[in-house]
Each structure stands twice: as C-alpha cells, then as structure tokens.
Simulated scan of single mutants.
Amino acid sequence: MLTRTAREESGMLAKKDIPPEYREWNKRWGAPYGFHVDHSQVSLQRFSAKNPERYGPFGFQPTSHTRTMEYPWAYFTADPQPGMRVLDVGGWLSGFQVVLAKQGCKVVNVDPSEDEKWSVGVEKTNDAHAEIHGWFTSMFDVDVTLVSERLQDADFEANSFDRIFSLSVLEHVDQDEAELMVDTMCHLLAPGGLIVLSIDLFLDVKPFGLLDKNAWGRNTDVHALLSRNNLTVECGDPAELCGFPEFDPQRIADRIDEFFPSWNYPVLSQFVTLRKPLG
C-alpha cells in the first residue's frame, strides 16, 4: 500500500533554479564533474595523472549534468549524520560515497560493476573494480565497504540501514529488476529510515518519444516501484512521476522551461523519498 504526505505536493521533477546551498555544496566538493584543473584529462584517465586527488572525489566517474541537482538534493534531503548506516546502490566511483563517509556515516557501496567501465586508462585485472575502488577511497582517506554484487544478491541483514541512496540507477535496468531492487531496499531499511531515489526521465523514450529505450536505459514506471511496499512517500508529486495516473507527458512537455535538463542529452530528474514506519 502506498501512502502519501502533504510534502509530496512540492513537485519533484528537478527545477531549473538551483538553490544557493546546492551551489555552495557543489563548489565545496567539486560536484558533479570534479574540480577544474589546468590541462585536465578525461575522467577515467585521471587515475594515472599526477596528483590525481586535485580533481576531488567527483572527478573520476563520467556523469550527467543533471547530477548538479541530484547530489546536493540527495544530501540535504537525507540529512546524513555521524554514525548512520548508509547504503549507496550503484555508487561505482561517485564522490557521493566519499562525502557521506566524510560526514561520519558507515557507508556501503553495492555495485556489481562491469568490465567495460575500466577500458580507459586502467589496466584490467580479475578484480579491477575492487582494486580501483580501494585506491579511490584511500586517496580521499575514507572507509567505504564495496560489495561487488547486485543489491538483491548481496547478503545484508533486514532493517540494517538508516539511509539508502539510489541515484540515477534504476533507469539502467528493466522494470522487473527495478521493482525487485526497490523491494530489497525496503527490506533492508531500518524503521524510521529513508530511501532517497533519483530516476532519470528520458524525453526521447516513451511516453515522450518513439523509443522503448535508449543507450542509457528506459523510462521506469515509478508508480509500480512505489506501490508494492508500505512506505510513506515524503516527497514526490504524482503529476511529475512517470507511471502515476496523474502524470501527463504533454503537460510536462508544456512546462519544460521550468525544469533542469541535462545540457548534453534530453533527460530530466525525478526525485522521490520513502520513509519506513517506526511501528
């Protein structure tokens, strides 16, 4: 059963106006592309650069411009506190896990990775993901546990995380797997805990365009994701979440100037948070 609160009425497609505190957060951490440096190399070639730490924690993962809003929104919405048990689903080499660890959270990054991700500037090994992740977290002096498995296959205890993040991940898998992943997040979330989701909304994919999916993924039925579990939607306007009866693609298209798109691809960000009841 899906319950709702008044906060969802704020509207949760990322808007074009970036709050000042988001700008300051991005400036502090170099999000989403890393700090500007002279003679910069492409992200995956920075591993072998001189003084690679100068790029900052967000300098090593190729990313989308929509993360300009997604990362600070997720951080301020979740309000991470020292000692919290945090799960970053699909965190790969995102600097977000570093920020959470710097905040004093106990961070687990669950990400199966893929060999092709290491094809630029990185020597492949049988366990390249773990080696590079270890180097990455050591460089920024943080302790993040990497679990190189799919979330639903990992051996985590129920109710074991205070915060669970999945930032621009669910659109990369098919609908059935996305639903299973959210079911698993709900199972792992501690009572009173929060799930923080950002989900890409592609404007060249149905119900907007002609494609069933593009090179990055597909438009997820968010209503189907959220209606399977008894969690409270604390933010997320049904009129701006794909799959809800209230969602009208034409209305979104007519309001396109209100939203924050990527500069290099026709995509918007849907924001949702889910709270697990205490009882």
Score class of each variant (00 low, 15 high):
residue 246 E to K: 05
residue 71 Y to G: 02
residue 193 G to V: 10
residue 199 I to N: 03
residue 150 R to L: 12
residue 229 N to C: 11
residue 213 K to P: 00
residue 139 M to V: 08
residue 252 I to C: 03
residue 221 D to I: 02
residue 148 S to P: 15
residue 150 R to K: 14
residue 277 P to F: 06
residue 261 P to F: 05
residue 123 E to I: 11
residue 91 G to E: 08
residue 101 A to R: 03
residue 110 V to W: 02
residue 239 A to W: 03
residue 176 D to R: 12
residue 78 A to R: 05
residue 83 G to N: 04
residue 57 P to L: 05
residue 216 W to E: 11
residue 40 S to D: 13
residue 190 A to D: 14
residue 168 S to C: 10
residue 146 L to V: 07
residue 267 V to G: 01
residue 267 V to H: 00
residue 252 I to S: 10
residue 142 V to F: 09
residue 243 G to R: 09
residue 150 R to M: 10
residue 79 D to E: 14
residue 94 S to P: 06
residue 170 L to C: 04
residue 76 F to S: 07
residue 102 K to A: 10
residue 18 I to C: 08
residue 85 R to H: 13
residue 245 P to H: 07
residue 270 Q to I: 01
residue 131 E to N: 09
residue 196 V to L: 07
residue 215 A to D: 14
residue 72 P to R: 03
residue 246 E to I: 01
residue 228 R to I: 08
residue 163 R to M: 06
residue 253 A to R: 06
residue 128 A to D: 00
residue 3 T to A: 13
residue 114 E to G: 07
residue 24 E to A: 14
residue 155 D to V: 12
residue 99 V to D: 03
residue 189 L to D: 05
residue 100 L to G: 11
residue 269 S to E: 09
residue 233 V to N: 01
residue 107 V to R: 02
residue 177 E to L: 14
residue 112 P to T: 04
residue 246 E to R: 09
residue 166 S to C: 15
residue 107 V to K: 01
residue 119 S to E: 15
residue 2 L to A: 13
residue 104 G to D: 07
residue 48 S to Y: 00
residue 27 K to D: 15
residue 50 K to W: 06
residue 60 F to S: 05
residue 30 G to M: 04
residue 206 K to S: 13
residue 19 P to D: 12
residue 184 T to V: 03
residue 47 F to D: 09
residue 275 R to Y: 07
residue 132 I to N: 00
residue 249 P to F: 06
residue 226 L to V: 12
residue 123 E to A: 13
residue 83 G to K: 08
residue 28 R to C: 02
residue 89 V to Y: 04
residue 228 R to K: 12
residue 115 D to F: 00
residue 144 V to C: 11
residue 30 G to S: 05
residue 216 W to S: 11
residue 242 C to Q: 10
residue 117 K to I: 04
residue 1 M to D: 13
residue 246 E to M: 05
residue 201 L to A: 08
residue 55 Y to D: 08
residue 159 N to L: 04
residue 31 A to S: 15
residue 238 P to M: 06
residue 19 P to I: 10
residue 252 I to H: 03
residue 207 P to T: 11
residue 111 D to V: 11
residue 228 R to Q: 13
residue 47 F to C: 02
residue 63 T to S: 15
residue 233 V to R: 09
residue 188 L to N: 10
residue 180 L to S: 14
residue 152 Q to R: 08
residue 173 V to T: 12
residue 149 E to C: 01
residue 37 V to E: 13
residue 69 M to F: 14
residue 89 V to S: 05
residue 188 L to V: 12
residue 67 R to H: 15
residue 58 F to N: 02
residue 251 R to S: 15
residue 26 N to R: 13
residue 255 R to D: 15
residue 98 V to S: 02
residue 122 V to A: 06
